[in-house]
């Protein structure tokens, strides 16, 4: 058995890990205290109507922990339960955490893994996302850092994508996708000519972590490992950004510049070329260090304008 343990690939893949495994590997060892944990059995009251099973934590872990010795609040969505979608209880736990962050001035780490609103409780989920955005922005206006971590199977879709873009800093892997409307939904509504959801290379170069990093939609690109996320999160908290009128004016300018520079692009590769990156065709295949080396100095950066 010890021989077996020695041979394991001990890198915890963020993509593969569960919400609990992600938090365990992200924060200081054993430092998590969970709020309204599974033993409280606060499950969704709505899924039974659809004959669907509940999960004891409704698909999200929230709590307090230490990150490199600093007291933080943490949340992690479980992308495999109902696609990590926001339901009433799920959403309310994150609302509470962000309200507490403002009250206690503690920074927050949110591990996103979500398809957006949970259909079976759509109104409650939609409203929860609105409450989360409000609580998050108020916490940031009070000086709290909110760091989003994206690299799960479900990506960060729908309202999740909006919440993510409200964070102070976003850390992504190439697997991490950030978007509002999902590929299948665009294809269903607008046709396969508009969006071929089966063409996965296309999906990832349009919505994936590398593209988001290149256009300034994410701030740090890391390898698919919990250790890399941890290091990047520590780095993010040690270089805080502010949210004020100046930040949003800068973001306005940044987003308008993006429209002006790339507004006519048909494909992500045209944007990458316009950034001056050359060549672009093998960008998706590159490992993180080669990618960062090639993108260095050429990408659009949010630089705190978020």
């Amino acid at each position: 058995m010890s021989v077996i343990s020695a041979l394991r690939n001990e890198t915890t893949s963020w993509y593969e890990a569960s919400a609990r495994q992600r938090i365990d590997a992200l924060v200081d060892r054993g430092s998590l205290t969970e709020f309204v944990g599974p033993a409280a059995r606060e499950t969704s009251p709505h899924l039974a109507i659809f004959g669907l099973p509940t999960q004891l934590d409704d698909g999200i872990v929230v709590g307090e922990a230490a990150l490199d010795g600093r007291a933080v609040l943490v949340a992690a969505q479980e992308g495999r339960f109902m696609g990590g979608a926001f339901g009433e209880v799920h959403g309310a736990k994150l609302v509470g955490l962000l309200r507490a962050a403002r009250a206690t001035r503690r920074d927050v780490l949110i591990c996103f893994d979500t398809g957006g609103v949970r259909l079976q409780e759509a109104n409650a989920g939609e409203l929860a996302i609105a409450e989360i955005i409000r609580a998050l922005v108020l916490a940031r206006l009070a000086g709290v850092q909110v760091v989003g971590l994206i690299g799960g199977r479900a990506g960060c879709y729908g309202g999740g994508g909006l919440i993510a873009a409200c964070c102070s800093t976003l850390i992504v892997t190439e697997q991490g996708r950030i978007s509002v409307t999902g590929p299948e939904v665009i294809e269903t509504n607008k046709g396969v000519e508009e969006f071929d959801s089966k063409d996965r290379a296309f999906v990832w170069r349009t919505m994936g972590g590398k593209h988001r990093y290149l256009i300034g939609g994410a701030d740090r690109l890391v390898a698919d490992s919990a250790a890399a996320f941890r290091a990047a999160a520590i780095g993010a908290l040690s270089s805080p950004t502010v949210l004020d009128a100046g930040t949003l004016d800068a973001e306005q300018a940044r987003l308008e510049r993006r429209l002006a520079r790339f507004g006519t692009a048909e494909d992500a590769t045209e944007i990458w070329s316009a950034l001056g990156i050359d060549p672009v065709d093998d960008l998706p295949a590159l490992d993180e260090s080669s990618f960062l080396a090639r993108a260095g100095g050429k990408r659009e950066s949010a630089d705190g304008a978020r």
């Binding site: 569960s18 599974p38 099973p53 999960q55 004891l56 479980e78 495999r80 339960f81």
Partner: peptide, 13 residues
């Protein structure tokens, strides 16, 4: 607690 509630999977507390 271990596992998640997903198709073909379960959580055990």
């Amino acid at each position: 607690i271990i596992g998640v509630v997903a198709s073909g999977n379960l959580e055990v507390m």
